[in-house]
Amino acid sequence: MTEASDGELARLAADGDDGAFAELVRRHAPRVRALCAATLRNADEAEDAAQEAFLKAHRALGRFSGEASFGTWLHRIAVNHCLDLLRAAGRRRSESLDALLDADSSVLARALTEPSPATTLEDRDAVARMLNRLIPDQRLALTLCEVEGLTYEEIARAMSCSLDSVKARIRRARAELLEMARHFSDSDIV
């Protein structure tokens, strides 16, 4: 028996076949969960966001035309959902986080200057706080580039924006992060 394609499963799911939708979730869960984890940097929030992305996809199945691949369509829903969450979190961000920034940037400054081979920063909270300083669109574009290895063209499609916006978002996100580290190195020397 040949495996049903995503498109066939999506059509069955749109007609109310929950088993077909469960199979789609099974196939695409790893990527969606990884995207949410990389973007949101909080295990519980990421897990919830990944579930919500599938829920949104389920509600929108009737609008899935089958022109794009189901994976691309679902990915776009997940990207937009993460972006909404980042924007909402940005509005809640408290000023008290600023006090933590000096210590965080020193961690980043060391990671950027150490001659030994780099490793991922162990302090996940510090990484999350630094990424929280970025504008959501910039943060998401850089995440899609660095974590998923998407081309700028693919990021533009996922974020429904122009190629030039993607270039600018990624460049600004990196400049902002390097500036955080640089700011610390400078004040450290003085």
């Binding site: 869960a29 790893p30 990884a34 990389a38 579930q51 980043l108 990671a111 490793t119 991922t120």
Partner: peptide
């Protein structure tokens, strides 16, 4: 910068995929 902040986090345990599917389907 990319390595320090974005190096691939450990992939989710594939055994937990079924639990995830169950949670999504319950919400659906």
């Amino acid at each position: 910068l990319g390595e320090a902040l974005f190096a691939a986090p450990a992939a989710a345990d594939p055994r937990s995929t079924e639990a995830f599917v169950a949670r999504v389907m319950a919400r659906v």
